[in-house]
Design a protein around this nucleic acid. Structure first.
Lengths: 236, 236
DNA sequence: CGATAACCGGAGGCGGCCTCCGGTTGTGAA
DNA sequence: TTCACAACCGGAGGCCGCCTCCGGTTATCG
């Protein structure tokens, strides 16, 4: 089991230039924010060759179909759903799915990377317009909103938390904890949040979100959970 | 590799014909899982006989072996491990495992019920000797202790939280939330804990415990998580 | 000391995961 | 425009885990 994981990670790393790719295909504004924030720029081989080749049209189309089908299944059944079913939904073979997304995590990442990016990006604005503790609370509420509309996001976060060093998720995780850390530190400086916990602790504390009841109940539970966590983070 | 690691755990008295299981009814053979439903004794007709029959000696022995093997595997690999591997470890066929434990949850329940019972039982004593908020904190710390020594307990709790209405776990869950509720209500009456959350909210908030890092890191994270939750529950 | 109910264990059907490879097709160069 | 090749497609197949079912075995009771 463990060796399987190791093996697939290895093949992944050497095979596909796909690793950092998000929804680059459909992003019309190729501005400064487009695409890979993944590259930390410390890999000489990768940065040497900027764009090896454009993706073939059929491949891009199929990739989109897979992401779409996966999003639907993830939303309906959670992130543990069958990959073969996703391939069938997309009208493609399982082999195609595995070429585009060597692991389940890659697929999940492709589906939710945009949402998580949006969430991360929201932190500075909140911080600029609210006192830090209120900003942190607002940020968490925003997270709840996302989770409510895209139910599978919760599963994604779960994966994010559990697979600590998945190379694919590493950058998303980093950005998420960075956003959290910024909010937290601002609060500590302002004296409204306690300074003896780090962003990972907060992240962990939010872990209860991804199984906070069902349906109508969920929203209430989630909000109360956030209120508990915020309360527990206030200095005093 | 760690088959006989946690041997002592199961060699204790696991012999009782009915150590306290909540029969679900789905058992293929009426099996050893007859016995007290919830409590309140409202089904005298169904079970007919107070003492249906004593378990056959070989059956009891095999059941013990299975629990022991499962405890070892759960501790080593988490609760998602292969049931067939557990049966092999125990030197038994997969059929035997399934007769004793019709679902994975039944097996998990058999392995961890005792630990969870101990945890539940500790609440009244704590409440008698400490102010309610301190008692709640101490109770949570106790939970951490259990989790640390029997790492699989975390997986068990996870299952407990996720499978909301598993009839097997229903009674354990009820007792756990009852203990939590007692602590919480005492604190509300004393005015030291807030009254706008219920025991399930607290339970959920502790959900982050079961993936709070690894190894040495774990203890610290877990304690900080508890401190956040306790802080968030304090009135003020 | 039988009769019988309970138990044992593994074969087998099902489905998911992942790999591998022969056939197909888009793409860039001649 | 044509051609060669690289990239892509898709499914067969091996492996494994889940769960059921049933013929053979054995402990327990009358």
């Amino acid at each position: 089991m463990a060796q399987d994981r190791a093996a697939e990670q290895a093949t992944t790393a050497e095979r596909e230039p796909d690793a950092g790719r998000a929804g680059c295909g459909q992003a019309p504004a190729a501005g400064p924010d487009a695409g890979r924030g993944a590259e930390a720029g410390s890999d000489p081989a990768a940065s040497a060759d900027a764009a090896p080749r454009r993706m073939r049209a059929d491949a891009a189309r199929n990739r989109d179909r897979l992401v779409e089908a996966a999003a639907a299944r993830f939303a309906a059944e959670g992130v543990e759903t069958s990959l073969e079913a996703i391939a069938r939904d997309a009208g493609l073979g399982i082999g195609t799915l595995y070429r585009h997304f060597p692991t389940r995590e890659h697929l999940v990442g492709a589906v939710y990377r945009r949402e998580l990016d949006l969430l991360c990006g929201a932190a500075p604005a909140l911080l600029a317009s609210l006192p830090p503790d209120r900003a942190l609370e607002a940020w968490m509420m925003r997270m709840i909103d996302y989770m409510e509309t895209k139910r599978g996001l919760a599963s994604s976060l779960k994966l994010l938390m559990e697979a600590g060093e998945s190379c694919l998720f590493a950058d998303v995780r980093d950005r998420l904890t960075a956003a959290l850390g910024a909010l937290l530190r601002a609060g500590v400086e302002a004296g409204t949040l306690r300074g003896d916990v780090d962003e990972l602790d907060v992240f962990q504390a939010l872990g209860g979100l991804y199984n906070a009841g069902e349906g109508a109940e969920w929203r209430g539970r989630a909000e109360r959970l956030v209120s508990i966590v915020i309360g527990g983070l206030r200095a005093g």
